[in-house]
């Protein structure tokens, strides 16, 4: 079978073969292979539960693909709540005629990305839709994780908390944008797409007093910081010069008039910690590959509740607004 056909989603022999040869082969674990109608799980008392749909175009981009993104995305949502990612479901909507080799490449990267956090895919579903009814492949993942540290919440930020950013910003948005048809630019920008659990795990292991964490996905750092300011009715004061932006990402912004603060990230997160733990948190994060460039970028105050203030290196300040209008569609 070199292409996915409608019969692969029909529930018959072809479906079974696809499940066996593709999904079972790469995602193998006892719960999945039990092949029941639903996965039977035993979990801790407090769990986090999240779901995400992935429609990114192009499906293969520098630094990842839709499969890696689908795992990292849900793993990161769980991690941000202080939950160890445990079990994931995976739903595939595949357009008739999609190359089986591409599907396998996607599934293999999903399996590889699962290893980073140790999470397992324990159930799933596949639908094949007629040509033209979907664009190549869409994936939905849902997941649960066991909460290791309760109380981490974007609603409970405190005055005095220090804000740490786990790395440079804007690489996912820039990488996807660059590969879009018709833009005609080339450059060495890799998406930051990655599972953040190792970084979160380190923070929890060293018992850092984390108030909140959030990955800066769609809408980028502008969106996340504004969400926090509103949710906790506090002011986030950021130092512009402390926010690291790769030269090539900034270059894309210069050419097309974007702001890297608005660009999506898929492996970069914002952390609010108690001031006393800020230095230890930095050391923890810098010891982990995915957050080795972590830096303090600001603090939480009461200066203007519900707003984000950006301080420039040359001594002026302005409010940072959440991004508006039509951002890039199908970024994740």
């Amino acid at each position: 079978m070199s292409q996915i056909q409608l019969s692969h989603g029909g529930g018959g022999e072809e479906t079974n073969r696809l499940i066996r040869e593709m999904f079972y082969a790469h995602f193998a674990n006892d719960i999945l292979l039990a092949a029941e109608d639903a996965a039977v799980l035993s979990v801790a008392k407090n769990i986090a539960f999240s779901t995400d749909c992935f429609t990114v175009s192009p499906i293969f981009f520098a630094g990842g693909n839709i499969g890696k993104l689908a795992i990292a995305g849900t793993v990161n949502d769980l991690s941000m709540m202080g939950a160890k990612p445990l079990y994931l479901s995976a739903g595939f909507i595949i357009e008739e005629g999609f190359e089986t080799a591409k599907l396998e490449q996607i599934v293999v990267s999903m399996a590889q990305e699962l290893k980073v956090s140790g999470a397992k895919i324990v159930c799933g579903d596949t639908k094949v839709v007629p040509r033209g009814s979907a664009d190549q492949i869409f994936i939905t993942t849902s997941g649960i994780g066991g909460i290791l540290k309760p109380g981490i919440s974007a609603n409970r930020l405190n005055e005095g908390d220090v804000l740490i950013l786990s790395g440079d910003i804007g690489r996912h948005g820039a990488a996807v944008l660059m590969q879009r048809e018709g833009l005609g630019v080339r450059g060495n920008i890799q998406s930051d797409c990655a599972s953040l659990w190792p970084a979160v795990e380190a923070l929890l292991r060293y018992d850092i007093s984390v108030s909140a964490m959030r990955d800066a996905t769609r809408g980028g750092l502008s969106a996340v910081s504004n969400e926090w300011a509103r949710q906790s009715a506090v002011c986030l004061e950021l130092e512009e010069s402390a926010i690291c932006i790769d030269d090539a990402v900034q270059g894309i912004c210069e050419l097309f008039g974007f702001d890297a603060l608005d660009f999506a990230n898929e492996g970069t997160f914002l952390i609010a910690v108690k001031a006393k733990d800020a230095q230890r948190a930095l050391e923890c994060l810098r010891g982990v590959e995915v957050s080795k460039n972590a830096a303090v970028i600001g603090r939480i105050t009461r200066k203007k509740e519900g707003r984000v203030i950006l301080h420039s290196a040359h001594g002026s300040s302005r409010y940072l607004e959440p991004p508006k209008g039509e951002l890039l569609p199908r970024i994740c």
Partner: peptide
């Protein structure tokens, strides 16, 4: 020529402050 060279110096905080 790096793209950065076309703008970095013209956003330099020290120069902006001196002009101010």
């Amino acid at each position: 020529l790096e793209l950065k060279e076309l703008y970095a110096g013209f956003r330099d905080a020290g120069v902006i402050k001196a002009l101010s």
